[in-house]
Simulated assay, not measured.
Amino acid sequence: MTPAISPPSIVMMDGDEVTRRIDQFAAMLHVCVHDGASIGFIEPFPITEARAFWRDRVIPALNGGKRRLFAALDGDRVVGTVQLDTDTMPNQQHRAEISKLMVRPDCRRRGLARLLMMQAERSAHELGRSLITLDTRTGDGAEVLYLSLGFKAAGIIPDYARDPFSDHLSATTVMFKIL
C-alpha cells in the first residue's frame, strides 16, 4: 500500500521564520525568475540578489507590521509564497495589496497559488480591509487565476515592466477585488 501524501500546508510566517528559512525563500525566488516569472527581477539574477530581497525588503516590512507573508510548505520545504502589503496611507486603511505570488516551477498545477491567494484574502478580511489590489503581466496564467478568484481588471498599462530575459517591455493588468 502506498502511503498517503499529505497536502502542502499554508502558514503565515513572521520575520524571524523567514530569516531562518532565507535560503529556501531565496532559492524559490531565484528559480521562479529563471523560469520567466515577471516579479520584478531581470537577468542576470544571482542568488545573492534573491537573498538580499528577502533580507533587505521583506523581513523589515514583516518585522514592522507592514506586511504579512504566507508560505506553502511541502513538508519542511518552502514551495510557494504570497505577500499582503498593508502599508497604506491614512486614507487607504481599507485596502491591501497582493505582491510576489510565486510557486516553485516543480510544484505548480497543484492549486497552491489559489490556496495562497485565498489565505491572503482571509487575512485582509480579518484586518478589516475591504479592497485588495494587485498587478500582473498581461496575458500571464496568473491573470486567469486572479479572474477565477473574483478579481476584476481595472485597466492595462502598456510597457509597464521589462521582461526578465530581454529589453522587451510588457503590459501589466491592474486588478482589484472588493471583499
Rank of each mutant, 00 (worst) to 15 (best):
T2W: 03
A4R: 12
A4S: 14
A4P: 11
S6C: 07
P8K: 00
V11T: 06
D14L: 09
G15V: 07
V18G: 07
T19M: 11
I22H: 03
Q24R: 01
Q24K: 04
A26H: 03
A27P: 02
M28H: 02
M28A: 08
V31Q: 11
C32H: 06
V33M: 07
H34Y: 13
H34A: 02
D35H: 14
S38T: 15
I39R: 01
I39G: 08
F41N: 09
F41P: 06
I42M: 09
I42L: 13
I42P: 00
I42H: 12
P44I: 01
P44R: 04
F45P: 06
F45T: 06
P46Y: 09
I47N: 03
T48L: 08
A50R: 05
F53P: 07
F53K: 05
W54Q: 02
R57W: 04
V58Q: 07
A61R: 15
L62Y: 13
G64V: 04
K66S: 15
K66Y: 12
R67Q: 15
F70K: 01
A71H: 07
A71L: 02
A72W: 08
D74K: 11
D74R: 01
G75C: 10
G75A: 10
V78M: 02
T81W: 03
Q83Y: 06
Q83W: 05
T86F: 10
D87P: 01
D87A: 15
T88Q: 15
M89G: 10
P90H: 07
N91M: 11
N91R: 15
N91E: 11
N91L: 14
Q93S: 13
Q93G: 14
H94S: 06
H94C: 05
E97P: 01
E97M: 14
S99I: 14
K100F: 02
K100C: 03
K100Q: 12
M102C: 13
P105A: 00
P105M: 02
D106K: 10
D106I: 03
C107T: 05
R108Q: 15
R109V: 06
L115R: 15
L116G: 10
L116T: 08
Q119C: 09
R122V: 04
S123R: 08
S123N: 04
A124S: 13
H125E: 06
H125S: 13
L127V: 09
G128D: 05
R129G: 10
S130A: 09
L131S: 11
L131W: 15
I132A: 03
T136P: 01
G139E: 01
G139L: 05
G141N: 08
E143L: 06
V144L: 13
S148M: 06
S148K: 09
F151V: 05
F151S: 00
F151W: 12
F151M: 08
A153Q: 14
A154H: 10
I156Q: 12
I157Q: 12
P158I: 00
A161W: 11
D163Y: 09
D163T: 04
F165N: 01
S166N: 00
D167W: 00
D167V: 00
H168R: 14
T172L: 01
T172H: 11
T173V: 09
M175C: 00
K177M: 06
